[in-house]
Simulated scan of single mutants.
Amino acid sequence: MAAANTKQKEHPMQFPSFQKWVGGVLFTFFIALLGYLLALLPGFDHVGQLACAIIIAIIYRQFFGYPETIRSGIAFSSKRLLRAAIILYGLKLNIDVVLQDGIGLLIRDAGVIIFAIGLTVLLAKILKADKMISLLLGVGTGVCGAAAIAAVAPIVKSKDEDTAIGVGIIAMMGTIFAIGYTILMPFLPISAVDYGVWSGSSLHEVAHVALAAAPGGEDALAIALLAKLGRVFLLVPLCFIFILIMKRKNKNSEQTDAKIEFPWFLVGFIALSILGSYVFGHSVPVPDSVMNEVSMITTWLLTAAMVGLGLNVSLSDLRTKALKPLIAMAITSVFLSVIVYFII
């Protein structure tokens, strides 16, 4: 009887907790939906669903505070769904194409990543900007925007609010640069293919590259995406480099308790990249409609995850911590665009 009574008492406590968890997850998807709807409006369509959702989440936090009662579900979205999105993002990477047709671009992409991270961190030091946000912005600028920031953040022990600030800035600046590229394109004395290489080698997100390169035609878009995929490909070795750096840093500072958790989601990212490159579309044909659906799911998962991160941002932190990293990242982006333009 006592055991039965204990079970009866435990159940009402567990069920509301599960409801709150579900409520938290659904809440992040609801904000993601609002971001999607906002991105359909003229003007905001260039900003994109991800950035719009983060903006809404940050605004919600300022007016209504953090929804503590559903924290468990929000945390699940910002951590677990984020890793799931990165794993699925691996399907966007065609390793075969990168290795066969883009070795030269791959070398250039490595230079882009080193330059972007190095200059952003250097400028941050000069400006006395927030080191973590600046590092994340350097990674996002050099590699592939929000996905790169999301992959590196847990390795370098970034706080959720710093990660969200970095993602928000990279989405905003990337959109501004992509629109700027399309405006400049008719006045530039370069071929469509060279314009595509320039876009793919210097812009932030895959979506930004597609936005900027599409007006140049199919050839420009194809070579732009190839150049961008090379940078995505280099995300994996970059993450392992950061793991080694963090381990050495902890060892030198004698922080024996500060263990670096192995990013197992990168294994999933690599696995799906291999499947997408050598299995799907080859020995196991997959319709484009299915791949488009997977891409859409990836976008929604990433957006919901970013909502969870965005809810951790306070405007006071944004004002005090984001301005100088934003300046450092903007200067780096301008230099990167100019340098890549002249070496293509």
Rank of each mutant, 00 (worst) to 15 (best):
residue 181 Y to T: 14
residue 156 V to I: 14
residue 76 F to Y: 09
residue 225 L to W: 07
residue 51 A to I: 11
residue 154 P to E: 01
residue 191 S to Y: 03
residue 283 S to A: 01
residue 31 I to A: 01
residue 342 F to V: 07
residue 122 L to C: 05
residue 164 A to S: 07
residue 20 K to A: 14
residue 147 A to F: 05
residue 240 F to M: 09
residue 107 I to Y: 14
residue 221 L to C: 10
residue 181 Y to E: 11
residue 54 I to S: 08
residue 343 I to K: 12
residue 295 S to T: 01
residue 150 A to H: 05
residue 213 A to E: 06
residue 50 L to Y: 08
residue 97 V to F: 15
residue 279 V to G: 06
residue 121 V to F: 10
residue 144 C to R: 03
residue 53 A to M: 08
residue 200 G to S: 03
residue 138 G to A: 08
residue 106 L to Q: 13
residue 283 S to R: 09
residue 276 G to C: 07
residue 192 A to D: 10
residue 268 G to V: 04
residue 277 S to N: 09
residue 255 Q to E: 15
residue 147 A to W: 06
residue 302 L to P: 02
residue 261 E to C: 06
residue 101 D to W: 11
residue 248 R to F: 08
residue 152 V to L: 11
residue 164 A to V: 02
residue 342 F to D: 03
residue 287 P to D: 15
residue 242 F to D: 02
residue 29 F to L: 15
residue 127 L to V: 00
residue 316 S to P: 06
residue 49 Q to C: 06
residue 116 A to G: 06
residue 112 V to E: 00
residue 202 S to M: 04
residue 318 L to R: 09
residue 250 N to L: 05
residue 22 V to W: 04
residue 31 I to L: 01
residue 283 S to N: 09
residue 159 K to G: 07
residue 87 I to L: 04
residue 5 N to G: 11
residue 236 V to S: 04
residue 330 A to C: 12
residue 27 F to K: 05
residue 28 T to H: 00
residue 4 A to W: 11
residue 96 D to L: 14
residue 114 I to A: 12
residue 252 N to F: 07
residue 264 W to G: 14
residue 18 F to G: 02
residue 80 R to G: 07
residue 262 F to T: 05
residue 333 S to V: 13
residue 39 A to T: 07
residue 53 A to P: 07
residue 231 R to V: 00
residue 8 Q to R: 15
residue 239 C to N: 05
